[in-house]
Computed example of a mutant assay.
Amino acid sequence: MADLDFNVLFLCTGNSARSILAESLLNQLGQGRFRAFSAGSHPGGRVNPFALELLEKNHFPTGNLRSKSWDEFAQSDAPQLDFVITVCDNAAGEVCPVWPGQPMTAHWGIPDPAAVEGSDDAKRRAFVDAMNQLQRRISTFVSLPFHTLDGLKLQQAVREIGKTA
């Protein structure tokens, strides 16, 4: 695993918007050093069309995105996870499966753009806001000095990212 250093799972309840955005963003911004996945505790079964539209418009990968259960990542043949990051408050409060590899965990709560009511323009603005916040956090995450931080300091740094806007 020369160029690929870390597997990261982003969790949300429905796995249709925020975790999907985070998966695509990290797979692009991580420049091959990270492999991102997303899942939900109660997946809706489809990716929100506003999430796909926004990612495509900004030239982020969408080809492999799908709404899936977090149970896929608790199986013995699942990728060994280094980080599990919740991006919605509901998922953060749920009892998660036991993840193979004992990954570091963090919570980066983002308001749910899929919950916004109103015009399509209002919904699109909510998705842009969520994506911008995730992009700032993921940019900070990928720039951490992973190989120089001990486990405790790395865990603290990843959790601190969730406290920034």
Results as ranks from 00 to 15, higher is better:
residue 98 V to D: 02
residue 56 E to F: 00
residue 74 A to L: 05
residue 111 P to I: 14
residue 97 P to Y: 10
residue 24 S to C: 07
residue 136 R to G: 05
residue 103 P to T: 08
residue 70 W to R: 07
residue 39 A to L: 15
residue 12 C to H: 03
residue 12 C to I: 11
residue 81 L to F: 01
residue 56 E to C: 02
residue 28 Q to E: 02
residue 28 Q to F: 15
residue 140 T to M: 14
residue 155 Q to S: 13
residue 74 A to W: 00
residue 143 S to T: 09
residue 20 I to H: 14
residue 131 M to C: 10
residue 98 V to R: 02
residue 125 R to P: 00
residue 50 F to Y: 08
residue 114 A to S: 13
residue 7 N to A: 09
residue 11 L to D: 00
residue 3 D to L: 15
residue 66 R to F: 01
residue 139 S to R: 11
residue 15 N to H: 12
residue 148 T to Q: 10
residue 122 A to S: 13
residue 83 F to C: 02
residue 57 K to V: 03
residue 125 R to Q: 15
residue 67 S to D: 12
residue 11 L to N: 01
residue 157 A to T: 01
residue 23 E to D: 15
residue 18 R to K: 14
residue 73 F to A: 01
residue 47 V to I: 05
residue 72 E to A: 00
residue 85 I to M: 07
residue 103 P to S: 01
residue 75 Q to P: 04
residue 159 R to M: 15
residue 23 E to P: 15
residue 93 G to A: 11
residue 32 G to A: 02
residue 112 D to F: 04
residue 26 L to A: 12
residue 8 V to P: 00
residue 126 A to F: 13
residue 29 L to H: 00
residue 156 Q to T: 14
residue 121 D to Q: 08
residue 24 S to R: 15
residue 152 L to A: 07
residue 16 S to G: 11
residue 30 G to I: 03
residue 129 D to H: 10
